[in-house]
Design a binder for these strands. Structure first.
Length: 425
RNA sequence: GGAGAGGUGGCCGAGCCGGCUGAAGGCGCACGCCUGCUAAGCGUGUGUAGGCUAAUCCCCUACCGAGGGUUCGAAUCCCUCCCUCUCCGCCA
């Protein structure tokens, strides 16, 4: 959510931001509602003040055993008027709030203006693509040969996009999660949290998934609950409706959770194997920082995510997303794309974003600054990392000619010392 | 799931036979005084949001879990919902 004052005073800026983000939002309607609201509020306040004053008089009169009936009669009408004004005011407020939720965050000035992912720019590359002296296989084939995944049975018990990890595949998946968690905790100083995977509507609205993406969420009707699409949702909302004392900032949290996404509208796209799933595992970093620090922290977080790929020795590049490809709530986003030599393409394994005060406003996450003033924090989050495509990249980059897979050094301790993944009976 | 208790300011805790309570008292915190240092003591201040304003002064409005109702007037009465705690039952 944006600051209404900012919208009022920078209409053109906001209009341009909406356009650059390929979003639709009716600024004029908001300005009109805002105007109406202030007028309605003024009327209400004045009448209410009058009522409060007279009501006190009535109280005094009654205490002195004097007659107050004429005032009482008068006040009945006023009470009715106030009720009308109050209804009117809350209607306007509701409409305004709903409208405000449809306005996206404003991209940072450093973000390239562009329509689609084609306009994203590579800001840096890391690692060397391995030279193969044989034809590298795709992860699906490698997984099959080593009995790491069971896509078919996953589809049988749930549906497509719900993979089953088998034996050493399950071990590798678990190793990845634990390795990443430990790495961020020990090396980068994050604090681990384990959070609910099911959240309520308010929480889902706080981080900006709702109302826009309702169709992408798994929804539990009876309770109006949602399955989380990312740990960002529960973790960021941990401090919703709170005012943190100054010394509570910054907060660096990391959480592993499964993530659930309906992926509505993306049928037929990247469906092979683990590329696009309805349920997947992800380690997520979330930060709450002082507004003055968020841009610096964005770079730091991106680096935190990159270090995982570096430790795994997987070649990647970093994209700075253009305005049109960024999410609704983000002011700036970097995507980490890992190289998959079997598929011969880069796969997104992490998305690191600065949401500035956008989520903080929605969820009301504030802090008391050193000068005593209450301000909104800035929130950031980044995958560190999503496992499925990391899994793919490991299989494809570390495959041997015979189809076995060498375990990356850093994962060996997490694989009970196993150094090579090979067929198991 | 059954029975009971309860949700008030950063915290504890009054108020709850309706009005002078945005809210006593205490703790904490901030500033000042005092003090050889520390402790104690004294004084003042200390919620959020909106409006007004040059203003973080004053003044007005809203908020005592959330929403609705009764009333001239509700933290206080009524209804619905949510949550917490205790006991019982059930269960990973």
């Amino acid at each position: 959510m944006l600051d209404l004052k900012l919208i009022r005073e920078n209409v053109d800026l906001v209009r341009q931001a909406i356009k650059n983000k390929n979003e639709k939002a009716d600024i004029d309607a908001i300005l009109e509602l805002d105007d109406k609201k202030r007028k309605a509020q003024f009327e209400f306040d004045n009448l209410k003040a009058e009522q409060n004053r007279v009501s006190k008089e009535i109280g005094t009169l009654k205490k002195e055993k004097k007659d107050a009936s004429s005032l009482l009669n008068e006040m009945q009408n006023m009470a009715a008027d106030i009720k009308d004004l109050s209804t009117n005011l809350s209607n306007i407020n509701t409409a305004l709030e709903i409208a405000m939720l449809t306005i996206p965050n404003i991209p940072h000035e450093s973000v390239i203006i562009g329509k689609s992912e084609d306009n994203n720019i590579i800001v840096r590359e890391w690692g060397k693509k391995r030279e193969f002296d044989f034809e590298p296989k795709e992860h699906t084939e490698l997984a099959e040969q080593n009995n790491l995944l069971d896509i078919i049975r996953g589809a049988k018990i749930s549906g497509s996009g719900f993979p089953v990890y088998n034996s050493q595949g399950a071990l590798l998946e678990r190793a990845l999660i634990n390795f990443m968690l430990d790495f961020h905790i020990k090396k980068h100083g994050y604090r681990e949290v384990m959070v609910p995977l099911i959240v309520n509507r308010e929480t889902m609205t706080g981080t900006g998934q709702l109302p826009k993406l309702e169709n992408d969420m798994y929804h539990i009707n009876e309770d109006d609950f949602f399955l989380i699409p990312t740990a960002e949702v529960p973790v960021t909302n941990l401090f919703s409706n709170e005012i943190m004392p100054y010394n509570k900032l910054p907060q660096k949290l990391v959480a592993y959770t499964p993530c659930f996404r309906r992926e509505a509208g993306s049928y037929g796209k990247d469906t092979k194997g683990l590329q696009r799933l309805h349920q997947f595992n992800k380690v997520e970093m979330v930060r709450f920082v002082h507004p003055d620090e968020s841009w610096e922290v964005l770079e730091e977080m991106c680096n935190d995510a990159e270090e995982i790929l570096q430790a795994l020795k997987l070649p990647y590049h970093v994209l700075s997303l253009c305005t049109g490809d960024m999410s609704f709530a983000s002011a700036k986003t970097y995507d980490l794309m890992v190289w998959a030599p079997g598929a011969q393409k880069y796969l997104e394994v992490s998305s690191v974003s600065n949401f500035t005060d956008f989520q903080a406003r929605r969820a009301s996450i504030r802090f008391r600054d050193t000068d005593g003033k209450v301000r909104f924090v800035h929130t950031l989050n980044g995958s560190g990392l999503a496992t499925p495509r990391t899994f793919i990249a490991i299989l494809e980059n570390y495959q041997n000619e015979d189809g076995t897979i060498t375990v990356p050094d850093v994962l060996v301790p997490y694989m009970h010392g196993l150094q090579v993944i090979s067929v198991e009976d």
